[in-house]
Simulated assay, not measured.
Amino acid sequence: MSVLSILTMAIAPGVALLSYFYLKDRYDPEPISQVLKLFLFGMILVFPVMVLQHALLQGLGEDPFVFSFVASSFPEEFFKWFIIYFVIFKHTSFDEPYDGIVYAVAVSLGFATLENVIYAFLSNLHFADLMMRAFLPVSGHAMFGVMMGFHFGKARFTPERTNRHLFYAFALPFFWHGIFDYILLATKSYWVWFMAPLMCFLWLRSLWKVNRANAKSPLGRITREERIKI
């Protein structure tokens, strides 16, 4: 495979998934500039996370559970949470619950896309490997982003429960990301029997959260009221 082919296949899944979730916004799509900024922030996160993961592995060893939850899931999901909270959470463009999903997915897929490119070139991946990464790690990051963004949206628009949902915005992606990695590491020869139902669950749960976040949009209520008047 040529360098251009590998690069295209490594980038395409992240861009396709981000486009899918961006277009799921029913009422007021986010400014492209903001979405791309969060995507870029996600890419930048790869470098400090890789350094931190290397340090953690040196200190804690490579036990599958420790790697999955401490070295992989925790730093990746924490830094994504950190970026969303301090960059976009209080921004004026965050004006409906679904926006949290768009921005969190953008950060997550920015991270997953650059990580995919690095793996593709350093590990000399072939077509089948890149397709597998598209269906597993890249899709997984998108699902974790939906979880995170859904609860950021809840935190933004239910002030009485802000702290609870900010906690969920980190804790749930952290937990499921850890489970995801642990299955791949601990069930080497029969991982598909666990991963297939897990991915089905994550996708169905994510689509439910997408619909629920859209349904809670104040812009949607305004649109319905306008239709009634007409």
Score class of each variant (00 low, 15 high):
residue 24 K to D: 06
residue 25 D to G: 07
residue 25 D to I: 10
residue 26 R to M: 02
residue 27 Y to H: 14
residue 27 Y to G: 08
residue 29 P to Y: 13
residue 30 E to R: 14
residue 34 Q to N: 08
residue 34 Q to Y: 04
residue 37 K to F: 11
residue 38 L to Q: 02
residue 39 F to L: 04
residue 40 L to N: 05
residue 43 M to K: 02
residue 44 I to P: 07
residue 46 V to K: 09
residue 46 V to W: 14
residue 51 V to S: 02
residue 54 H to F: 15
residue 56 L to Y: 12
residue 58 Q to G: 15
residue 59 G to D: 08
residue 59 G to W: 15
residue 59 G to K: 14
residue 64 P to F: 04
residue 68 S to A: 13
residue 68 S to M: 05
residue 69 F to P: 06
residue 69 F to T: 10
residue 69 F to I: 06
residue 70 V to W: 01
residue 72 S to W: 01
residue 75 P to R: 01
residue 76 E to P: 01
residue 77 E to L: 09
residue 79 F to Y: 11
residue 80 K to R: 13
residue 82 F to K: 08
residue 82 F to C: 12
residue 82 F to A: 13
residue 83 I to V: 15
residue 86 F to K: 09
residue 88 I to F: 10
residue 89 F to H: 13
residue 92 T to W: 00
residue 92 T to P: 08
residue 94 F to Y: 15
residue 96 E to D: 08
residue 99 D to Y: 10
residue 100 G to F: 12
residue 101 I to D: 02
residue 102 V to F: 13
residue 103 Y to E: 05
residue 103 Y to P: 11
residue 104 A to L: 03
residue 105 V to K: 04
residue 105 V to R: 08
residue 108 S to K: 02
residue 109 L to V: 10
residue 110 G to V: 03
residue 114 L to F: 13
residue 114 L to S: 01
residue 118 I to R: 06
residue 118 I to Q: 04
residue 120 A to S: 15
residue 121 F to N: 04
residue 125 L to Y: 00
residue 126 H to P: 00
residue 132 M to N: 06
residue 136 L to D: 01
residue 141 H to N: 08
residue 147 M to A: 04
residue 150 F to E: 05
residue 150 F to I: 07
residue 152 F to N: 07
residue 155 A to Q: 10
residue 155 A to L: 13
residue 160 E to T: 15
residue 163 N to D: 13
residue 163 N to P: 02
residue 163 N to G: 12
residue 163 N to V: 10
residue 164 R to D: 12
